[in-house]
């Protein structure tokens, strides 16, 4: 409050505008939740706070069973991709930052150059690969293209370069093998970067659409975004059901954010500046 009372009028205006802008930013999200709490007869009533809030839509959707399955599919895939990225991107980033060996520059440039290849160019060959090896409609088929990323590798390499060699040498003198040194000594030193990588990978896989859409044919294997898209087409006008589905897809990331806000914002800043 003191900050506000001391402020010049210009600052008060700026603050008010920022606040109003912020409200506009979250309105679609609020509207989505509010509509999900209305029954079909109240949808046309555009009040933000429903006159008679009901959880019926959520009940209907969860009883349908498909959403639960899609939710778990998405969760499993996002966790798997995150674990794999933290492990491999960390390992490769570390190797490229801390080892001197023939071919190092080549490997680094090769991995970096894949940043320039758009996913859209690869989906056709990936699809052919997946159908040739019978990976269509499988978790592996959805997750395999994203097990490692050049972005993550680059990010981790940047961070490992700031880790002093002395730490690692000390561990070598203690007789630890290289794998243990990386896992037990080096990795804990870059936890902020690892968490940034984890947040990005999880979010990216949780919201991914085009590849899961292409590779999954059976409803049991849909991820949440793919399921939501086909569910919404199927519902056509039942906006309250569509909003409920959308809310279910959005809720987990929002909840996680509310709990870990500072952490996530710092992670995004780190990744954005170094990546």
């Amino acid at each position: 409050m003191t900050a506000l009372s001391k402020a010049r009028p210009g600052r008060v205006v700026a603050w008010t505008l920022l606040f109003l802008g912020g409200i506009v930013m979250v309105t679609p999200i609020l509207f989505m939740f509010s509509t999900s709490l209305k029954d079909s007869s109240q949808v046309f009533d555009l009040r933000l706070v429903p006159a008679e809030p009901t959880l019926d839509n959520y009940r209907t959707i969860l009883e349908d069973g498909r959403f639960l399955r899609w939710f778990l599919n998405s969760l499993f895939i996002a966790v798997l991709a995150t674990v794999s990225n933290v492990f491999f991107d960390g390992l490769v980033g570390y190797t490229l930052a801390k080892f001197r060996f023939p071919g190092r520059r080549l490997v680094f440039l090769a991995i970096l150059s894949t940043l320039m290849i758009p996913t859209e160019m690869l989906v056709i060959p990936w699809y052919l690969m997946a159908s040739r090896f019978g990976w269509l409609d499988s978790y592996w088929g959805i997750v395999f293209p994203g097990l490692m990323t050049a972005f993550g590798t680059f990010l981790m390499r940047q961070f490992f370069e700031t880790v002093p060699d002395d730490f690692l040498e000390a561990a070598r003198i203690d007789g630890l093998n290289e794998f243990t040194i990386w896992w037990k000594v080096a990795m804990p030193l870059v936890t902020p970067a690892l968490s940034a990588l984890a947040i990005f990978t999880f979010l990216g896989n949780w919201t991914a659409f085009i590849w899961p859409l292409i590779v999954s044919t059976r409803a049991e294997m849909f991820t949440l975004p793919v399921g939501l898209s086909s569910f919404s087409v199927e519902q056509s006008v039942a906006w309250e059901m569509i909003m409920t589905g959308a809310a279910i897809a959005t809720l987990p990331t929002l909840l996680v954010f509310l709990v870990l806000q500072r952490f996530i914002v710092r992670g995004v800043m780190l990744a954005g500046l170094k990546g």
Partner: peptide, 21 residues
């Protein structure tokens, strides 16, 4: 019985039959 959303139906059939499954 296996079912798909109408929008993707034809695509899915062709893809799956072409892949032999």
């Amino acid at each position: 019985q296996t079912t798909f959303p109408y929008a993707d139906y034809q695509t899915k059939v062709s893809a799956a039959v072409a892949a032999g499954n």
